[in-house]
Amino acid sequence: MSRKVNSLGRGSGLALGISLTWFSLLVLIPLAAVVVKSTAGGWSGFTHTLSNPQTQAALRLTIGDSLLVTVLNVVMGTVIAWVLVRERFPGAAILDVIIDLPFALPTIVAGLVLLSLYGPQSPFGVNEANTRNAVFLALAFVTLPFIVRTVQPVLEELDKDVEEAASSLGANGFTTFRRVILPSLVPAIAAGAGLSFARAISEYGSLVLLSGNLPFKTEVASVRIVGFIEGDNTAAASVIAVVLLVAALVVIVALDVVQRRVSRRG
């Protein structure tokens, strides 16, 4: 059925004009200002900010830990989705709600939540506050739902006949999983991984209390940006912001390519 499409009338044209103006004033112009500001000092301003060892350490920690957390999520997210869809056991419904908590909790509360178990008053005596482990932990917490929530619906829709056919043809459980189930999950896993990485490199709120923001040790890129803003150096802050935007873009595009390649082969 071809969709009947309305062209803009006077009322809807006005609504579009107002909406676009609002969106530009709120989002597009401010983001453009960040890009413009980052080039204010020319190429040398860009390289000057990025050659600062403290900034480099923050970027290396942020991008490295975000990649690691994304790998962890690829494994754990897929396993969690698998167990929630395929297994029936008491308490499964509660687990399903727990998955959404990291999305719902304010980030500053997420930091405090993790401090209560892994901080100085930990009931089992570990104190990970102000360490690199704390950074990893916070990122794992806030990105937990992404892959679970993208893989879960695909797994629910999966055609079980194909699995039956594979096993009746003599494939064992592992072979069926690797050759039949996994390929159909890859696009969802890739999409979730992209979201998870983008979220991890931009994380701020949950790290403020937990990581201690120690330069060269636990300071991430977002904290470095806030440091530059508070020091009234918005040009340097904009340079790091642009690097983060580009990193997120690169990973999202790369995963999109993976996704297409897999679906073409399947």
Binding site: V5, N6, S7, L8, S12, L16, L20, F23, V27, L28, P30, L31, A33, V34, T107, L195, A198, R199, I201, S202, E203, Y204, G205, S222, I225, V226, I229, T234, A237, S238, A241, L244, L245, A248, I252
Partner: peptide
């Protein structure tokens, strides 16, 4: 409705989801 730039707008709408809150403040 059909209008010029519709696909671009639809893609741009999601941008706030992948921008760091800190960058939002800065912008």
């Amino acid at each position: 409705y059909e209008f010029w730039g519709k696909r671009a707008l639809s893609a741009l709408i999601d941008v706030p989801l992948s921008v760091s809150p800190v960058v939002v403040g800065l912008s």
